[in-house]
Every structure is written in structure tokens, then in C-alpha cells.
């Protein structure tokens, strides 16, 4: 049965960019994000944050988290620094209430920004 709208969990979607010079797969990234949240906030904190990687295309991605826990999510993402020995970091582009908003506002904007200088040349 569907949950009633007033009882649904309120969520936020964190758009991010992965900074790394090697290819990192979706599975590895999920594992590392959960690992980072576990080590920083423990099991209870992780259940409150309720994280999930919605999409990830190798560079840009979206993570879902609870509405009240965006600061904690940011902190946990900032604590990631290497993945099986490969140096990496995560740059949070922005936080939105819908996946559509996060994609349109932050990820597509970033793509356009990077393409512009080439057009001028």
C-alpha cells in the first residue's frame, strides 16, 4: 500500500561532482559513501540520514538524504578522500527538493559552464 503523503519521509537530493583522475564505478562509490557515513555517525546516524545514490554517470551524480540531515550528509561526503588507494574528493554542487530540480539547476549548469570557453574559440 502507498504511504499517505503527510507520512512520507521528506527528502533532499544532493547533486555532486566526483574529482578523481581514475574511473570509479557505481558499486565502489556506494560502498565508500556508506562506509564514510558509518564511520562518522554510526548505525543510528546512518539510519537517520537514510542515504542512497540515485544516479551516477562516472563524474556527476545525485545522492538522496533526509531533509533535516543535509549538513551531516555534506560532512560525511567531505570526509571521503580515497577509494581503494585512488585519491578522490567530492564537490557538492547543490541541494534540491526534487531529482529534476537537482539535475536541471546544478548538473546541467555545470556542463554548460565548462563548454562555454570552447565555443568562444
Amino acid at each position: 500500500m502507498k504511504t499517505r503523503p503527510t507520512l512520507r519521509d521528506k527528502k533532499r537530493y544532493v547533486a555532486f561532482e566526483l574529482v578523481s583522475d581514475q574511473i570509479i564505478t557505481r558499486q565502489e562509490l556506494i560502498k565508500e559513501i556508506l562506509n564514510s557515513i558509518y564511520s562518522l555517525f554510526g548505525d543510528i546516524g546512518c539510519s537517520e540520514i537514510n542515504p542512497w545514490l540515485m544516479t551516477f554517470d562516472g563524474k556527476y551524480g545525485i545522492i538522496r538524504c533526509a531533509r533535516e540531515k543535509t549538513t551531516e550528509t555534506r560532512a560525511a561526503l567531505a570526509c571521503m578522500n580515497n577509494l581503494r588507494g585512488v585519491r578522490m574528493s567530492i564537490l557538492v554542487l547543490g541541494i534540491s527538493g526534487t531529482i529534476k530540480g537537482a539535475t536541471e539547476k546544478f548538473i546541467q549548469n555545470t556542463l554548460i559552464k565548462e563548454l562555454e570557453p570552447e565555443k568562444k574559440e
Binding site: V19, S20, L40, T71, E72, R74, A75, L77, A78, C79, N81, N82, R87, M88, S89, L91, V92
Partner: peptide, 17 residues
């Protein structure tokens, strides 16, 4: 290195810890 730089908002979140 460049992989240790964090944006100001994330620094504030870390400081909140």
C-alpha cells in the same frame, strides 16, 4: 594535494561536527 581541498560549505559542515 588538490584532493584535500573542500568547498566552504563543506568546511562549515565539518566544523559543525
Amino acid at each position: 594535494s588538490i584532493y584535500d581541498i573542500r568547498s566552504p560549505r563543506e568546511m562549515a559542515a565539518l566544523a559543525g561536527l
